[in-house]
């Protein structure tokens, strides 16, 4: 069995993440793969460096898995996030969710990526043609219930 959560500098494999959620109760499985894109806000992106506070990032991923498995009955979720230098087209994050029914698998997967952007201490350093910039999103607070409700609302829209 693969680990449910991982923060790793090794290339991600969808098959590995899928193996972490397999089981006889699953009627559907969704996967989400986040990729490094060659453009951002009009800039030509050359590569990204992902920096993590790895032990807290692993805990935060585990919290998201626990939240999702509590919200969607019978769900099994796994999330692997990459760190270090990633080239265009490489996977930065892979999420897999297995549930008894398909609607929950889609919703839980969407929930996971929204929550990752809220509470997982990982930072993207964008190297583009002509410079570099740290990309900054949400102030991370795992106890912020308003943020969690926003993720649930997006997931269930």
């Amino acid at each position: 069995m693969s680990p449910a959560t991982a923060v790793t500098s090794a290339p991600l494999a969808v098959e590995t993440v899928l193996r972490a959620v397999e089981g006889p109760g699953a009627g559907a499985v969704t996967t989400f793969v986040g990729l490094v894109r060659d453009h951002n806000q009009g800039r030509r992106v050359l590569w990204l460096d992902y920096e993590a506070y790895a032990p807290l990032a692993e805990k935060a991923l585990g919290l998201i898995v626990d939240e999702a498995q509590a919200r969607w009955a019978g769900a099994r979720m796994a999330i692997h996030h990459r760190t270090g230098r990633l080239e265009i087209g490489e996977a930065s994050v892979v999420i897999a969710v297995a549930t008894p029914h398909r609607a929950d698998a889609f919703a839980a997967c969407r929930y996971a990526i929204e929550r990752i952007k809220q509470i997982v201490p990982i930072w993207k350093h964008e190297h583009f043609e002509g410079g570099e910039v740290w990309i900054e999103g949400a102030t991370a607070d795992a106890t912020d219930t308003a943020a969690r409700e926003t993720a649930l609302r997006i997931a269930c829209a």
Partner: peptide, 8 residues
């Protein structure tokens, strides 16, 4: 502020 996941 964190920025993990996929491209925003």
């Amino acid at each position: 502020p964190v920025s993990g996941g996929e491209a925003r």
